[in-house]
Computed example of a mutant assay.
Amino acid sequence: MSTTKTNATLHFDESGFTGNNLLHPQQKTFCYASVECAHEEAKDLVEHIIAKYKIQNGEIKGGKLVKGLKGRRAIDEILTHMKGRYKVSVSDKKYALAGKFFEYIFEPALSEVNSIFYNINFHRFIANMLHVEFSVRGAMAEELFEDFESLMRTGNFDGLKKLFSSTKEEGISPVLESICDFAIYNKESVIEELDGYAGEGAGKWVLDLTNTALFSLLAQWGQEYDSLTAFCDKSKPLSEDQTIFDVMINREDKKFSMLGGERSPITFNLSEPINLVDSKDVHGVQLADAVAAAFVYACDPENQDEYAIKWRGLIEESVIFGSVFHDYDYLDLKKLEVQRNAVLLQELVDRSKKGVSLTRNIREFLQVTDINLIANPIGATVN
């Protein structure tokens, strides 16, 4: 017997939006929040909060409210009232950029059998390694990321300093050198992948996290409701292209992905196209704005007041699978999977240098690698 309910009216807004600039120094976390409630209930709650806490301009703006104690009280009342009726997607922007790096620099050359690489978490190995390099080692990784971000924003390969440069800085780590070598030897695959896409139309927002977060949230809500009606605060990425959402209108089948060993919903049933609205007119969007701001505030380790601590306790029940955070367990060389991925990276670089197929007999290579590593495991650290 189905446990889903009928229709959900959902409201969405974000906190920490910087578009394609995922390296913004003051906005390190992106949160896209969703709240399920009828328009009248949202209107009543917003008007109550505005009157009780004497909020100016007649609109709830979470980013402003979290800056003061009274504002945090107001947000906490919203969270308490709406408990169990909001879901959020949260992303560490640097790690999200590292994930995009794999998607656009590595995957084009591996696309023939990309499921093999995802199923062994090779993408997470590369992304976490890049995050370590960026967070710990500094300049070289930062310039690499800046080049990548510039390339994805503009589609222009000219003027890049490090991404496809054969010149390496002294002291570069062996792993980062291997990642750079892979990019250099597989540049043509990247060019082909980005041709006519990056920097044009929806491609201008290829690094933005809004569409991905919205899709993931809708897919999660779709597990609880037969149909969904969505109201989103207007944004340029959503305005540019809604194709991936339009194909979900009146779609009643439920399909799942098993990418990386996780069963994740990839369909949902929209009752109508996504409604792009002004938050002044749709009160539920203001509630989503407050929820998003709360989780960005909670994810900042510098915030240690009672509300930051309390809201951190909501993360496990509210943050959906698919949120993007680094997990250095994927770099723990005591694990066979991580040792295998370290060996695989070097194998891919070696094949790239020789100009031979990156994917031919790769499954057999991985099987032999596992046997060899069980007999002779490699060291416990990656330098």
Rank of each mutant, 00 (worst) to 15 (best):
K52H: 10
L69A: 13
D181L: 05
L348W: 01
A293H: 03
L238Q: 05
N269Q: 06
S115Q: 13
K52M: 01
Q242N: 02
T29E: 04
D305F: 12
T29R: 06
L22N: 01
L276Y: 05
M140R: 11
R73K: 04
S165N: 14
E302N: 12
N186S: 09
Y330K: 06
C180M: 14
I184C: 08
F321W: 08
H24G: 03
H283P: 00
S235L: 12
K236Y: 01
L207G: 06
V206W: 00
A74N: 08
E107Q: 13
D233K: 01
L160H: 09
N376H: 14
E59P: 02
N341W: 04
E149K: 14
S2M: 14
K93Q: 04
D44R: 11
G260R: 06
G84D: 05
V343N: 01
E192A: 14
H283Q: 14
A213K: 03
A308T: 12
D226L: 11
Y118Q: 04
V296L: 07
E170Y: 11
I274M: 02
L217K: 12
M1P: 05
V136M: 11
I249V: 15
F256R: 03
K87M: 15
F215E: 12
K280F: 09
I55A: 07
N119T: 13
I191Q: 13
A8C: 02
N275A: 09
S279R: 06
S115P: 00
A213T: 06
L259K: 15
G58Y: 05
P108H: 00
D253N: 07
I120H: 04
S111L: 07
K161T: 09
I116K: 12
F268N: 10
V343I: 15
S227Y: 01
S227T: 14
P273E: 10
H326M: 09
L10H: 04
E252A: 14
D226H: 13
K70R: 14
S189N: 09
G68A: 08
V338F: 06
K100G: 02
G313Q: 03
A139V: 15
L130C: 04
V247K: 15
G84H: 03
E262I: 15
E77Q: 08
A33N: 04
T80I: 15
I179F: 01
V88Q: 00
D350L: 11
I378M: 12
I378V: 13
F106A: 04
D300E: 14
L194N: 03
M1Y: 09
S271M: 07
I320D: 03
I371W: 05
N250F: 11
G159T: 05
Y86G: 09
